[in-house]
């Protein structure tokens, strides 16, 4: 470990009890909405909650939250303090990159990850949810390698035959590395269809979230999102995650 930033990252997260990265090998399964709603529902239960958008090249949680990146303010105090948005401590690289395209290769992603984590003062949190980009790449490997102890990975999949192999691959990487898996969330699915898969992989099945046709019309408006069946299902899942079931 020759990078000084890696030494302070654990200190910056010392007050965070649990870190939940939301991961999926495939894109388009709804990680961003689920990450954001997990954070919002956790906060609605009175838990101190944070949300970090780790999708540097395509950040989107701000859209779900209805946050305009051009209006985000950088708050400094021996580093930076995440902004309070709808009761959650929120940080996305958009606070620096705004809405501009930001293509990055692996080395730049690693540097951005370490810099951001080294300067962000999260303070006391019960849970920090992390939206990650699809796949298993630099952001995920950095997370797993340097934040491993507090991590409990939430895997998201849709009930597509294409999803099964990718869930298996991701689970294999996590299990063989002895990383903790909080469980599997089945998204865009009216009935539980991936329970057997979770059982075979010996991971918890956290629940299914129905497909809501007009969800796009509610993105960016928390009050409207709160009235959808998705919110209720995510609330059930967050209760299970936090041990309130």
């Amino acid at each position: 470990m020759s990078d000084p930033r890696l030494l302070v990252i654990p200190k910056r997260l010392a007050g965070v009890k649990k870190i939940y990265p939301i991961m999926s090998s495939k894109g388009g399964v709804g990680k961003t909405i689920i990450s954001t709603l997990l954070a919002l529902t956790s906060s609605s239960l009175g838990c101190k909650t944070g949300l970090l958008d780790l999708d540097f090249t395509n950040p989107s949680t701000h859209i779900v939250l209805g946050v305009n990146p051009w209006e985000q303010e950088i708050i400094e105090e021996k580093g930076i303090i995440p902004q309070l948005v709808h009761g959650i401590k929120y940080l996305s690289i958009t606070i620096f990159t705004r809405e501009n395209p930001t293509p990055m290769r692996g080395e730049a992603v690693v540097n951005a990850f370490r810099e951001l984590l080294a300067i962000t003062q999260w303070g006391e949190l019960d849970s920090l949810f992390i939206d990650t980009p699809p796949g298993i790449s630099d952001e995920h490997l950095e997370l797993l390698t340097y934040l491993g102890d507090k991590l409990e990975v939430v895997i998201v999949a849709t009930p597509s035959p294409l999803a099964i192999k990718s869930v298996e691959r991701l689970a294999e990487i996590l299990l063989e590395g002895n990383y903790k898996i909080a469980g599997l969330v089945e998204n865009m699915s009216d009935k539980p269809k991936l329970q057997k898969l979770a059982e075979n992989l010996r991971i918890d099945y956290l629940g299914n979230i129905p497909y809501v046709k007009d969800i796009d019309e509610k993105i960016g408006n928390i009050e409207l999102l709160r009235k959808t069946p998705i919110w209720e299902k995510v609330l059930e899942i967050v209760n299970r995650l936090l041990g309130n079931k």
């Binding site: 540097f56 950088i74 930076i80 690289i93 606070i95 620096f96 990159t97 705004r98 501009n100 395209p101 930001t102 293509p103 990055m104 730049a108 992603v109 540097n111 951005a112 810099e115 951001l116 300067i119």
Partner: peptide, 14 residues
């Protein structure tokens, strides 16, 4: 300059 000051990789945005 401030954005790049915090995270130099923001340079790719500008």
């Amino acid at each position: 300059r401030e954005a790049i000051h915090f995270v130099p990789e923001a340079v790719y945005s500008y």
